[in-house]
Design a protein around this nucleic acid. Structure first.
Length: 956
DNA sequence: CGCGAGACTTGGACCCATTTAA
DNA sequence: TTAAATGGGTCCAAGTCTCGCG
């Protein structure tokens, strides 16, 4: 096993403890969040300007807020109302925008900017094989290596780069070269390309680190596998090409409107200078986007240059060729885990897994199609404690009722939810009662829920909670330690470790013993390289959810038809364990019980699963934690895939634009759906069963969810994932608008808008455009692209705090695009009013200070304070200073207030965790000397360990 | 091709410890 | 020092997407 990419395991962490893996660690202080100041809003406008060929025009509903709508609840006017107007007159909307001058957060240019290069001490030492690789990095870092190379690269850089300082551009270019190539390549494999084999090398740690050797080889790349023809181009009438992505008209308005209804990078295909990105000429572009290129490093550079101008189609062709070859050539570098393997996987179970000792087996590409691990050792899962009856009697028609422990357990589940919103849901109560009745038995006195009084149990529960709260810190700590002790052994898994070492490593021995410590030092000091290799070899990953879900009442979201149903207790006999063949089978923690089944399937990553008691057709899995290299690897592949989309996007847009007018209705629907997904980052929208909440995604939008408002505004209003409401008014291209109108003809509100479409058709189509492309890739693409652009456009200098604000602003923009919401906290309004009071108070003080200043100028003493005490007699300058301080304070508070109001419904975390390529963040931090800890917390640092050594010039 | 099983990612709420404000 | 606010971490629901089969 080669060492796969980073090991972000705890072990590592700990081992690394002394020497931080993280490079730019600087100050430990966490910065609290900085209020995004008002500047924020404006930025939205800025962002759309002219940026890289993106479509500016479209805007998200004015300020983000609006767009984010309320949660399921009642639709409210809310700020939406503010926004609203766009519909009426698009133009207006622009005005509505907050006109605030763009203030950039940073006023002063600081040194920061300079260094794009230096900043980062390279994180870890890589094995010598990687030296070359490193050199690249380093070269960049320290300097500009060869100019000429850079120049080439520049072309390849993104649109936005125009805005960047030369130096950064250069470096960016470099990065591309190095990292991109390296990075991307691997993807290929995961993209559904013909699995090219890459000979894997054993120790790679991230693709960046792919061993040189392999890197070199890569060149010929695999292409997209098939190039199917696209029917595509052929049939369609030519679409108005100008508008291709909505450009023309929008453009004008775009500029004006800062308020964007929806934002999106969609590309406008602006001609401009700006985007060097490959923008295909339309005509050709339309052509088959089929197979595509895969990038090979060297090759790529070369191509890049010219490619910009080359029509996509051609480009593709080019690349295609190589594909075949490559495949034949058997590439080297495969990622073991690459998703592409999946396909073959199932079968591969039989994969030969030879002894784990034989490394060869592990890494080899061949060996493992679909193989996710070679050896896997873990301790199974832990069960929740058995139910302990409390004996508190509930009332039925005011009489105490005796319940058996089983009956009481279920009654308690309900009782503890008395103060939740579920009590207002008849469905919840009905489902609960149905299931409880089964346990009570037909003859039980308890017959009607309405006659039940659970308050005694509820109160008992509240008291228990209170008791717990009252415990002293020590008691709590002891309790925690006790729990930890019990759970400790379940928290770890050894993935691809050498079996014989396992005992030593098991648990956290290595981490805590002197021996471990010594070794660590030793390794650290004397054998850095060895150490890296060592760590890679022994992978101890933390298990994500090793606790079996306790019984309870199903808490479905939105109007879930099954809410309230009893989720029964899971027993060992329900659980299937997946573990290495030679690993000891975890002991069943419940005496007398046994596991349902033991599997040794190395083509999957789960450690255990059981069937969901609520929906037996579904499974609940136990996986490794997000910080594991297995997860890291696939995370990285996900981002590489969306980066790849960058190279195809222009062609894809051209293609769907052309299809807006297709005679073939399915095709037209696909085109429009793709447009919406691209522009609005909508989810795909799989079909759902009747026993699930009625929510929709793009393909399942109903007629009533999209209202066309002439001339070209679409008003969206639907419940998406988790029954989170999506409301947005978006200006779209005329052909899209017309197509939507036409899709609605003859249908009722609850009919499918895209009746000819479903996600599998859509994805099948997307795959023809780019290997591995699916609808969700657009969301990642949209999010990461937005972050990358905003960061680069808006980071102007200033201190760390200001830069962090810029980051948060960008993060917020992404959250709005993705419609990541949170419920407004209960204390929100009081917090706001408290702030208002303070502001008022300060204003009063300010007035008094001004009075005193005026008096001081006239040589009079200050008035008495509100408390009646006399103030010190100061000179005018001193009063002025005080005034300035107070004014600053007021301004800060107002900013805080605004930020708070602004973010009250926006959840920033989700996008950070799932959609923003961490390399963008890391590189930006390096370039701007922002300690990464200001942006990523501990768990994100662990999760993104694979991204930490990205070069500063990395661009998405 | 459609379907369903299966595997994995995404996502908001909630709980609780820590930090910050009062 | 205490109370409120934050933010990390957990929990588990709810999506997406692939694959194999008939």
């Amino acid at each position: 096993m080669a060492v796969q990419a980073c090991v972000n395991s705890k072990t590592m962490d700990e081992i690394d403890d002394d020497d931080e893996p993280i490079v730019f660690k600087r100050s430990k202080t966490a910065s609290k969040q900085n209020p995004l100041n008002s500047a924020t809003k404006k930025s939205s406008s800025q962002m759309h300007d002219g940026q890289s060929g993106k479509q500016l025009s479209e805007v998200r509903s004015s300020n983000g807020q609006n767009s984010i709508s309320q949660k399921v609840k009642p639709v409210q006017s809310t700020k939406a109302s503010l926004v609203k107007s766009p519909s009426a007159s698009p133009k207006v909307s622009s005005s509505s925008v907050k006109a605030s001058p763009a203030v950039s957060p940073s006023a002063s240019p600081t040194k920061a900017s300079i260094s794009s290069a230096k900043a980062s001490p390279v994180a870890n030492s890589k094995p010598s094989t990687l030296a070359a690789d490193q050199s690249k990095h380093s070269s960049q870092q320290n300097t500009t290596s060869s100019l000429k190379e850079e120049k080439q690269l520049i072309n390849d850089s993104e649109d936005s780069e125009d805005d960047k300082p030369l130096i950064s551009r250069l470096s960016a270019g470099l990065s591309k070269q190095s990292s991109n190539h390296a990075d991307r390549r691997p993807n290929t494999s995961s993209l559904g390309l013909p699995p090219v084999q890459k000979p894997r090398v054993k120790c790679e740690d991230s693709d960046d680190e792919i061993p040189l050797s392999s890197k070199f080889q890569l060149k010929p790349n695999a292409g997209p596998s098939t190039s199917k023809s696209h029917d595509f181009d052929e049939n369609k009438p030519k679409a108005p090409k100008l508008q291709q992505n909505g450009s023309t008209m929008k453009d004008n308005r775009i500029k004006k409107s800062s308020t964007v209804l929806n934002k999106r990078p969609v590309g406008e295909v602006k001609s401009s200078s700006q985007s060097p990105i490959k923008r295909p000429k339309l005509n050709d572009g339309s052509s088959p986007i089929v197979g595509k290129q895969v990038f090979v490093k060297a090759e790529k550079k070369v191509n890049d240059e010219d490619e910009d101008n080359v029509p996509i189609s051609q480009r593709m062709k080019k690349s295609i060729t190589p594909v075949n070859k490559s495949s034949s050539a058997k590439q080297k570098v495969t990622k073991v885990v690459s998703s592409s393997f999946k396909k073959m996987s199932k079968k591969s179970k039989k994969v030969v897994k030879k002894s784990k000792y034989s490394k060869s087996s592990k890494m080899l590409p061949g060996s493992g199609e679909g193989q996710k691990w070679t050896t896997l050792i873990h301790n199974g899962v832990i069960f929740p404690p058995a139910y302990k009856p409390h004996g508190v009697k509930m009332l039925y028609k005011a009489q105490k009722v005796d319940l058996t422990p089983e009956q009481e357990e279920v009654a308690t589940m309900f009782a503890v939810m008395l103060d939740t919103d579920y009590m207002n849901k008849p469905k919840f109560k009905e489902n609960f009662m149905n299931d409880w009745r089964k346990i009570l038995g037909k003859k039980h006195v308890i017959q009607r829920l309405e006659d039940c009084d659970f308050t005694p149990i509820y109160e008992w529960h509240q008291k228990e909670k209170e008791k717990k709260k009252q415990m002293s810190t020590e008691e709590k700590k002891a309790l925690r330690e006790e729990k930890l002790k019990q759970e400790e052994k379940y928290m770890w898994a050894i993935v691809d470790g050498l079996k014989e070492k396992a005992p030593m490593l098991c648990g956290n021995l290595i981490l805590t013993t002197h021996y471990g410590h010594l070794m660590q030092r030793l390794i650290h000091l004397a054998f850095a390289q060895f150490r890296v290799a060592f760590l890679r070899l022994i992978k101890i990953a933390t298990v994500g959810n090793f606790r079996v879900e306790p019984p309870g009442l199903f808490r479905g979201r939105g109007e879930h038809p099954k809410m309230g149903k009893l989720k029964r207790r899971i027993q060992p006999r329900d659980i299937t364990i997946n573990i290495g063949k030679d690993a000891p089978i975890p002991e069943c923690p419940i005496p007398g019980e046994r596991w349902k089944e033991i599997r040794h399937d190395n083509t999957v990553t789960w450690l255990a699963f059981w069937n969901d008691p609520i929906n037996p057709k579904e499974f609940k899995y136990v996986f490794l934690a997000a910080s594991s290299s297995l997860k890291g690897q696939s995370d990285k592949e996900k981002y590489e895939k969306s980066r790849m989309l960058k190279d195809y996007i222009q062609g894809i847009r051209a293609a769907y634009t052309k299809d807006f007018a297709s005679k073939d209705i399915t095709r037209r629907q696909i085109a429009v759906a793709t447009y919406l997904i691209d522009k609005l980052a909508l989810r795909a929208g799989n079909e759902k069963d009747d026993d699930e909440a009625d929510t929709v995604g793009c393909c399942t939008l109903k007629v009533e969810n999209v209202e066309p408002m002439p001339p070209n505004i679409l008003k969206f209003d639907f419940l998406g994932k988790d029954s989170i409401r999506y409301q947005n008014e978006v200006e779209v291209e005329l052909p899209v608008f017309k197509a939507i109108q036409q899709f609605r003809i003859g249908k009722s509100g609850s009919d499918d808008l895209f009746d000819k479409l479903d996600t599998s058709k859509l994805n099948a189509h997307l795959k023809e455009l780019m290997p591995g492309l699916t609808a969700k890739v657009f969301r990642t693409y949209n999010a990461s692209t937005t972050l990358d652009e905003m960061l680069n456009r808006e980071t102007k200098g200033g201190d760390v705090t200001e830069k962090v604000v810029v980051y948060q602003h960008a993060n917020k923009e992404v959250a709005i695009i993705c419609n990541h919401q949170r419920t407004v906290s209960k204390s929100h309004s009081t917090q706001i009013s408290r702030l208002n009071e303070k502001i008022e108070e300060l204003k009063g003080i300010l007035d008094a200070l001004r009075t005193d200043l005026a008096r001081a100028k006239k040589g009079k003493p200050p008035l008495k304070g509100s408390d009646g005490k006399p103030k010190k007699n100061l000179n005018p300058e001193a009063w002025e200073r005080k005034i300035a301080q107070t004014t600053a304070k007021i301004e800060k508070m107002e900013r805080d207030k605004e930020t708070k109001e602004d973010l009250k419904t926006v959840a920033l975390g989700t996008s950070k965790i799932n959609y923003l390529d961490p390399r963008i963040t890391v590189a930006w931090c390096k370039r701007h000397e922002v300690p990464i800890e200001k942006i990523f917390n501990k768990s994100l640092l662990a999760k993104f360990a694979w991204a930490m050594d990205v070069i500063p010039s990395f661009r998405f």
